[in-house]
Write a protein that binds this DNA or RNA. Sequence first.
DNA 1: GATGAATGAGTCTTCATTCAT
DNA 2: AATGAATGAAGACTCATTCAT
Lengths: 214, 214, 214, 214
Amino acid sequence: MAGGVVPGVVFGRGGSGAVNDSDQGAVRAARPKRADARRNEKTLLDAAAAVFVASGVDAPVRDIAAKAGVGVGTIYRHFPTRADLIIAVYRHQVEACAEAGPTLLETSATPYEALRRWIDLFVDFLVTKHGLAAVLQSDDAGFDALHSYFLDRLVPVCGRLLDAAAESGEIRPDLEAYGLMRGVGNLCIGADHDPRYDARRLVGLLVEGLRRPD
Amino acid sequence: MAGGVVPGVVFGRGGSGAVNDSDQGAVRAARPKRADARRNEKTLLDAAAAVFVASGVDAPVRDIAAKAGVGVGTIYRHFPTRADLIIAVYRHQVEACAEAGPTLLETSATPYEALRRWIDLFVDFLVTKHGLAAVLQSDDAGFDALHSYFLDRLVPVCGRLLDAAAESGEIRPDLEAYGLMRGVGNLCIGADHDPRYDARRLVGLLVEGLRRPD
Amino acid sequence: MAGGVVPGVVFGRGGSGAVNDSDQGAVRAARPKRADARRNEKTLLDAAAAVFVASGVDAPVRDIAAKAGVGVGTIYRHFPTRADLIIAVYRHQVEACAEAGPTLLETSATPYEALRRWIDLFVDFLVTKHGLAAVLQSDDAGFDALHSYFLDRLVPVCGRLLDAAAESGEIRPDLEAYGLMRGVGNLCIGADHDPRYDARRLVGLLVEGLRRPD
Amino acid sequence: MAGGVVPGVVFGRGGSGAVNDSDQGAVRAARPKRADARRNEKTLLDAAAAVFVASGVDAPVRDIAAKAGVGVGTIYRHFPTRADLIIAVYRHQVEACAEAGPTLLETSATPYEALRRWIDLFVDFLVTKHGLAAVLQSDDAGFDALHSYFLDRLVPVCGRLLDAAAESGEIRPDLEAYGLMRGVGNLCIGADHDPRYDARRLVGLLVEGLRRPD
DNA sequence: GATGAATGAGTCTTCATTCAT
DNA sequence: AATGAATGAAGACTCATTCAT
């Protein structure tokens, strides 16, 4: 089954290429400094990812700076808002997830099966991101960019899968992708730090619930 | 249909009696002063409820005090910790919800139907409590009392309904009440402030998902 | 030796009579309520003394009220300022100490001996009063009444002993009673809660130091 | 008389060298920024010293910040706890005092004379530090570091002087340095803000008292 | 007279964010 | 460009003191 391939592709970090490269195609003489700035940004993202895992996505900026061995100013230079930083940290994985949608549709037995597996991928991603699911719900305006990014990137993909499954008659046709994504995201909140709570299981039930006709 | 009765009773505030009343009918030297303190506490709870709706359950103490027109000290006097305040604010509704469980079991056509309706009750409660669902997930030790209260009060009720529905063969028997409650709670996060997100609908799907055999 | 008598007299509480009675000689028809008010005041003083021992003389007013089983308002009615309360609590003992001066002068072998023993009395008193010695040094205006009381009552007594000892040629004649009292008071600070610090010993050395001619 | 030399050296601030200087002569990549931070720290210490004189060592952090013309955060950055700040403020003088001990032993006519003069030095230091003597008695755990610092640094020095004087037969041999330091410290409490109280004089008498055989 | 509820000033402490070096 | 020092807004909590009942 081709399914086994996907996760590897998806979460290998770096899978989908130049997502974060902001200066390809610089026409003017390449600025020599750029090299270490790039290196610095990589360091930053790794540090942020590590701290996010340990303390959640709203960890103090200073902690991240310390972990990266840079000053806080450097973080602000590269990522003016926290949303920018979070997006950058998870961009590769989000992209990979988005790209996995069409692939799964092709490689799965049925559209519903593809949907199920794609959701699994998304859950796997979220469940390990301490606090990310929570911040995705925050109505703080500072996170608008973050919300937009996630939704713009993933909702259409989910929508396609949903439509396909509806067309094939496997699920009820009346659920918007947006709502499903939010629901799945919510179910992932707090999935770490509570061994008694199995988010994957609940998401499974939710997706199962889609099958029943209204 | 008896079901229609329950919600009215449940969420009418004060429906289920003496939960928070600590001295009705006190025969002994009943301190006369309590009158205004009681009134004040009511004011406080109403203000807190209002502020919770507007700013979430972790709104600044001072905001709540201001809303109630009292000094912050008054709040600390009545509710030493934030958890105490939150519990007090929602106690009536939680109690009512808890008490509705057995009633629904009696008055519903099937155990599953009772479970479904009880969950609906719980969702109706949570959905309107901005931030409550979120704080119920917090791993901050200061909220332990809050967690305990909710779980102690509601999980057993839910467990009974779940067991009954499992015994009647309507649902798969392998989901713990704790997990279901957490899942439902999570699905309710952010349900206000986002018209595109219909928590009730998703919870409905989740409960629907229970019916399928594994 | 008569000395043995003195401490008993001094610290027996109630030794010196009507010090705290504020209404003897009321010409108008005796107010009937006065009885329980008096009792209340006694309760208050005992409670304050106990709390002072446990938490120092700047213990929270509420603690004292709680210990006495009265409301804080009652304390403020009887003792408008903290200084008033402290004075009232220690009045008997201060009076007893003051009165012991002349007695000791008569019953001791020499004036210096009397001085030495009187100082011992004072130290015994202070050392057991957690925080009293410290507050006696505070330059907080709120304690002026307290300072005045202690000084007015004890400095003259000490002065008499000092003069007598100077006249008898046992000590240098150039130390003011005020300074000596303050010094002894200071040496008593923190004498409790530190077993390695022996205030009595140091006061002994200080008094010993008086003997040397300049 | 060599004695005249010592006080000048001792209390000139900066007399004894590198105590607080943490990187003089740092050969490696010496962070250039440190310049203004260092200047700031100096400002801070001066401001703290001034406020301590005026309001005692437990003056509000904000007062110190205001006096120094910095934000409160700056103080917390440099001195995480109040004890840290107090220690820093007095470090130079404490060190100088400690170092004066051996010097005095060499340059004085007798060990007792050295002791006397060293105590004078200590008194000169303490008498001008409003509230320091008091806080040195506090049993608040937050001041443990402060206590330790003072004791670790000064008690051994005093002990050496005491031992020498005892060996030379000038004083009674049975007083611990710790007790003497505490006693002297206590006698210095409130020595400012009371012109009628001469701490130096009383300390003089205390030290005089040491000479008498038990 | 007694009570204790209410008040609110005063402190501490944390962190996001800016900006001089 | 990078640094990290400085800033100061925010929010929690305590307790002396007043005052309605």
